[in-house]
Amino acid sequence: MTVVGVSAVRLHPRSAAALALSGAVGLLAFCWPLLVRHDSAVAHSTDAPWLFVLLLILILGVVLAEIAEGGMDAKAIALLGVLAAIGAALRPLGAGAAGLEPVWFLFVLSGRVLGRGFGFALGALTLFASALLTAGVGPWLPFQMFAAAWVGFGAGCLPGRVRGRWEVVVLAAYGAAASLLYGLLLDLSFWPFTVSGTGAPSTLAFVPGAPLADNVGRFVAFHLTTSLGFDVPRAVFTALLVTLTARPVLLTLRRAARRAAFDSPAEFAPVERQLSISLD
């Protein structure tokens, strides 16, 4: 019986606390259009979405610095870089076609094998590297990085006891659910930009400060009309890709993880005397 996975990037209590707090801020940054009260300070300013973009950039930087501090050695860095490169190379393949996002299976499988900390860093860095390579740095990038990071993190949290065929089923189901949720959250982050300032309120647009149920109804309508056509094919595609590739890719990643020997720290021991005698 082989090991399920290793933690290539170790999470200390400190980085775990930072992760939890950043998750809270991230959730607010995504869901603020639903939570904002009518008479609060940000309800009627068009700057509110941009404020959360800036906050999310800072939070991502802080959390990645916390994770890297003492938890990332050269092997983890190299593995992160190489897997992020594969993701960044895969990503343009799906551009244009509706719902074809070929990077998701990489986050899911790598997070599963290399641990939640690694999955978090991989999700964020893949999207960052891909944006730098394609010169696509924009206000959507922090949201994408954040959501993808949590997808990788979640893959590392799946129960370790599930093995064999069931493992593939669990991973495929997780991949589909995660990509649906990712689509929902990204849509939510874009939604406030449809706010109608001077014009009449569109029945799909975000109305700042409207009651929660009202805005949820509007958002559901917006999501159904604009992006569900992308999200459902993407979820199916991800699940299919995970099912097809899980066996060989998991095997390869586990072999690489074992060869990298993340869990056994390098030690410097004095050279034994026998060696020097035999060399005489």
């Binding site: 990645l64 610095a65 860095i77 870089g81 190489v82 490169a85 590297a129 390579l133």
Partner: peptide, 20 residues
């Protein structure tokens, strides 16, 4: 503070063309 992460991104950006 983001040095390790930056190195990983540099590796990724150098390596992505090589993957292709």
């Amino acid at each position: 503070a983001l040095y390790e992460v930056g190195v990983a991104v540099v590796v990724a950006m150098t390596f992505a063309p090589q993957v292709i």
